[in-house]
Simulated assay, not measured.
Amino acid sequence: MPDDRDEIRDLLKRTAVALKEGGVPFALCGGYAAWVRGAPEPDHDADFLVPAAESERAVKVLHDAGLTVEDPAEDWLTKVVQGNSFVDVLWRTCGHPVESDLIDRAEDKPVLSVHMPVLAATDILTTKLMALDEHYCDFSRLLPVARALREQVDWDTVRREVAENDFAVVFLDLLGRLGVVESLARD
């Protein structure tokens, strides 16, 4: 019997293959995208982004591929479910519709023997930091990701993109104080 990690890895691959074969633009994002780039493997779900304009087609493609698709209460994602595992397919991130340019910046990488677009490291950090708020502010999950990806990230771009999120700004200051990255210049 597979454990949850094997199950989520299988579902991640099956979801990516279905989206690829269906011609839906997508990119692996979140913890598994960071893992592909050297961060620790997450212990929960996997996430994909699709452009908001492709959301309905993505759901149809996943369903047509024989995957179990659930429609959660949130109106910005769908869930692909297998056993105790799930993959989120999101068309909004941090309250904003996913635009094609975010997907276009993704790089094709092998993930568990399946080639797929993986979000750029700068975009991974930006989206993770923009998710920080008073209800979710767990720096302990972000610190290993930032350490692992630090040489792959354009930190000045991250700083500009998250400047309006005080939680993200504080995290960037923490990275500088800990010596994870050089202190970031301010405009």
Rank of each mutant, 00 (worst) to 15 (best):
I124H: 02
D43E: 15
R105I: 08
C94W: 08
D101S: 14
L175F: 05
R150F: 11
L102N: 00
S55Q: 12
E107Q: 13
D71R: 01
A163H: 03
E41V: 04
E7M: 14
G30C: 04
A73S: 00
V17D: 05
A46G: 07
L184P: 08
S140L: 07
A148M: 08
H96E: 13
I8K: 11
V69D: 02
R160M: 06
R9S: 00
F26T: 06
L77S: 06
A106S: 13
V69T: 00
M1R: 12
H44F: 12
Y32S: 02
F167Q: 10
H44C: 03
R14H: 12
C29W: 09
E21T: 08
V24C: 07
A73V: 02
D133C: 01
L178F: 12
A163V: 07
V59M: 14
D43H: 14
A52R: 14
D187Q: 12
G176W: 05
E21V: 05
Y32K: 03
N165L: 06
L178V: 03
M116R: 03
D43R: 15
L125T: 11
W35S: 06
L174F: 14
T68F: 12
P25L: 01
Q152V: 00
P110G: 06
V81H: 00
L174T: 14
Q82A: 15
